[in-house]
Structures are given as structure tokens and as C-alpha cells.
């Protein structure tokens, strides 16, 4: 008898996001990563997405914090999802390692959430949001962990960030430029930012958001819906 873990779990261990189906043959949840510098509104975007989508989709969130579980605790306090749908990965002070170089802990967190939510009898998860702790402009998610990634910057960080580029700005599937409501106060030229982003990103989409505004997250939520629609009709 072993008292540390009486519960039994199904053996899962998919190697990575490369495997798009669950062991039972159904398509697994779409995994979207959210990264970006500190303070740009990643956690606020995750919270707003959960509120906007939770009535139509079964959602879970994995946070990658620098200090243990601060982002997870914020989401819990805001009660955007029930606690069993939020999981915090500890990163040893290096979130970018945990989302890019060594994704093992994140993959386990995603699988455990799929198992836990499935065990509640609420049906399978549709969407898992993986949030990175605030990091620098080079932090991107491994394709082994997520199917698509959103990079969040804000106007308060300066209007030269899109011009400077970096892997997050240039290659993220969606670039979110947040806090547009602050543009007049920080002297930022939004049209210039849009031009610079276009120059860096070509046809990849950019969304301007002001999360404080009513329905401010809508461009991001619509983008997520579109990704999910594509994902669901993909080959099983």
C-alpha cells in the first residue's frame, strides 16, 4: 500500500504538441501560448479571454511564474475559472526555459488538466492557455508545447518595440498591442506602431486592445475562436 498517491491516473505521456489526438482518438484541446515582457497585460488578457469564452468553451490555464504561483493566484482571486482548471508550473526563475527549452513540466501540467477536467464529467477540454511569466522580447514557446502563440506588448513600453522586433514580435501567430487607451498619455503613435509591426510581421495579424474598455479583449477572443475552428476540423 502506498499512501503518497492512492489515486490512479491513466498513463498519458504524449511526447509533445506534435501529437494532435488523445489516446481515445479524439482531437485534444488546442494549446495557445501567451508571452511577452513584464507588465504588458498577459495575465489580464488571459483573465479577459476566460471571461469572454468560458460560457462557450471548456478552458484551462497553465501559468509559468517567476515566483511560484503569483499569476495563478491572481486568476484564482479573480475567479475567472474554477481552481481545478488552473495549474501553476514552477520555473526556477526561468520561465523562458520552461516554455521553450525544457517543456516537460508544462506538458505534464497540460495533461493533468485534461485528465482532471475530464474526470469531472464535464467533457473534454477545448482550449488550454499557457501563460509565460514576464520575460524579455526573445521569449517564445516551443512548438512542442503549444499550437499557436500570442505575444503581448503594450504602448507604455514605448512605440519602438515593434520596430526593434525580436522573435516574439516577428514570429508570434498574433501580436497584441495592449493599453491603447494610454497612447495619448505616453505620446505614442499607434499608426506608426501598426506600420512597424506590419514591416516586421508581413501578413501575420496584429490586434490593438484596451482591456479596461468594455469587450476590450474581443479582437483576441475572435482570433482564438478562428484558430479553434481550424483546429477542430483538422485531421484526427
Amino acid at each position: 500500500m502506498h499512501l503518497d498517491h492512492k489515486d490512479t491516473f491513466p498513463e498519458r505521456y504524449t511526447y509533445s504538441a506534435a501529437a494532435p489526438v488523445r489516446p481515445d482518438g479524439t482531437r485534444r484541446a488546442l494549446r495557445i501560448g501567451l508571452g511577452g515582457p513584464v507588465g504588458t497585460g498577459k495575465t489580464a488578457t488571459v483573465a479577459a479571454l476566460c471571461r469572454a469564452l468560458r460560457d462557450e468553451l471548456s478552458i484551462a490555464v497553465v501559468t509559468n511564474d517567476i515566483y511560484t504561483r503569483e499569476d495563478a493566484e491572481f486568476l484564482l482571486r479573480e475567479a475567472v475559472l474554477p481552481p481545478e482548471r488552473i495549474s501553476a508550473v514552477e520555473t526556477g526563475a526561468c520561465p523562458h526555459t520552461a516554455i521553450r527549452d525544457d517543456i516537460s513540466a508544462n506538458l505534464e501540467a497540460v495533461e493533468d488538466l485534461e485528465a482532471a477536467v475530464g474526470a469531472e464529467g464535464n467533457g473534454p477540454l477545448d482550449l488550454v492557455l499557457v501563460e509565460s511569466g514576464g520575460d524579455n522580447l526573445t521569449a517564445t514557446f516551443s512548438k512542442g508545447l503549444v499550437d499557436a502563440q500570442i505575444f503581448v506588448i503594450d504602448v507604455a513600453g514605448g512605440d519602438d518595440i515593434p520596430r526593434k522586433g525580436g522573435p516574439g514580435v516577428t514570429s508570434a501567430d498574433l501580436l497584441v498591442i495592449n493599453k491603447t487607451d494610454l497612447a495619448p498619455y505616453v505620446g505614442v503613435d499607434l499608426e506608426g506602431m501598426a506600420r512597424d509591426a506590419k514591416a516586421q510581421r508581413g501578413e501575420l495579424p496584429v490586434a490593438f486592445t484596451a482591456l479596461k474598455a468594455e469587450n476590450g479583449v474581443r479582437p483576441v477572443a475572435d482570433w482564438v475562436r478562428a484558430r479553434l475552428a481550424e483546429w477542430t476540423v483538422g485531421p484526427a
Partner: peptide, 28 residues
Amino acid sequence: RRLGRQMMRAARATWPDPALDALAAARP
């Protein structure tokens, strides 16, 4: 055990072996 599970994931992708599969099944 948590690190063992992560090691198992990496090991099975790196050096596939039925012995690893068997231990993973016995200690999920």
C-alpha cells in the same frame, strides 16, 4: 516522482525502449 515522470517523458522520446514503457505504465 515528478522529476522521474519528466525524465521518463524525455527518455522515451530519446531512447525508446519497452522497458521504459513498462515502468511508465506501472508508475503513471
